[in-house]
Design a protein around this nucleic acid. Sequence first.
RNA 1: GCUCGUGUAGUGUAGUGGUCCAUCAUGAAGCCCUCUCGAGGCUUCGACCCGGGUUCAAAUCCCGGCACGAGCACCA
Length: 475
Amino acid sequence: MKDLSNAVNGKVILRFAPNPNGPLTLGHARGVTINSEYAKIYEGKIVLRFDDTDSKVKPPLKEAYSWIEEDYEWLTGKKPDIIVRASERMDTYLRYAVKMLDEGFGYVCKCSAEIFKQLRDNSKECRCRNKDPRENLSDWNEMIIGELTEGMAVVRVKTDMNLPNPALRDWPALRIQHSYHPMVGDKYKVWPLLDFQSAIEDHEQGVTHIIRGKDLMDSTRKQTLLYNHFGWNYPETMYWGRVKIHEFGSFSTSGMRKEIENKNYSGWDDPRLPTLRALRRRGFDSEAMRSYWIDLGLTQKDISVSLQTIESFNSSKIDSKCERRIFVRNPKKIKLDSNNFEIQKKLILNKHPLNEIEGHREWDLEDLEIYVESEDLEKTHIRLKDFADIKIEKSVGIIQSIDRVDKRPIVHWVPKSICKKAVLTIPNGNELIIQEGVIEDIQIVKNNIVQLERVGYAKIESINDEFIELLWLHG
RNA sequence: GCUCGUGUAGUGUAGUGGUCCAUCAUGAAGCCCUCUCGAGGCUUCGACCCGGGUUCAAAUCCCGGCACGAGCACCA
């Protein structure tokens, strides 16, 4: 990773500021990873800040606060140094708003949004701009006590109506919002907008470096203008570009929330969703995920990435910890004919091919009935992995050799006596593919991730008397 | 329309004037090994957006195009 500019070891303070309207997604993971890595490198601190100042367009979800803390901790392996909820810091924001009005670099604007936009686009000042502080404070008071209702007034930061970038001209800092807030109810009638709240809080927390999406570049510029008014120095700022993930297309937390409410998904951890809880449930390793985002780096380029890369990181991370098991899809029963070869009664197999995990699996071969994938039976001469070469004749496998003597394909198989029904669920875009089969029922432990030989990695989701449920991780 | 940003192999990324016939990862193809279509090893494929300029020398600096993206919300 690049160096942070003007960073002093031990003095760096970073922040990650999500809206608690749902749990963290794969996109958020970039912010968490990059910020926490820098905190680690510079022995600095990181603030987890909940930007929950809007209760109308993207209303906070009460449960999301703790979900996000969990997700954060899972991904970084530790708790944030400081946790701040904007809704609990309202008094501070309102105090600064008063200061701004009092010192004359802010004003209460009663123009409608449409009118103001017109004025702004033509570099014209609105009539509210030149009120004296006393009048502004009196208007402010009407906002605060709820006399003015939503849409009737807004507090603006005075910048310059001739700035080339129209977005920066007298931008709105606080607005009236009478809707119910899940954390503080209807205690406040006036709420700060992101640019104001975030600017004030960064200053209050002593944030030294801000790393955020480049869609927030104008925020930096707006906030710098505000900092100038207050006589503060703006933190060093870095940006990343927009990220698209092939497999998930474009998604939004609010969109997912709706789909979940409509029962189109089973919950925030539905395996089809790009939430961290869904990926965690499937068995993604947090370190692999971090390496992935670090590997992508911090550039302002808009990128379009594939989950394949993260899967590759994940495979190399988990492979040595995953025991092997056999899962036979679309199983077809085969009766073995020993053909006068001497067959061992038990087959001893490694839990891991390189013995990275100690221990064995014992297969009982007593009754000579086995399952093979029907697709593998398209060939008549196959080798049962770790066992014998056979020739298929009408559902009978005639053993031709115990040792491997030719290049016939090696297939996986399982004795009927040790297997159990299993169902593998594979998330595929918006669908769930269900594959039925039989699994080698030896030391199957709930929540373990196993490599199903010749199939891929899967998580043991549940075990009952009838069958075992498997959740697909990746190939 | 105004403002801002970005353009290096399929996908990411390194590279800030010569050490770059451009790094690494991922991917694809092939080979070796292996009793997994896994792991490992090897080989190959594949890129500096375009056009000018500065310079002995440009992926790197300058100008002009073009393309893509973002902001211009009383959302975050």
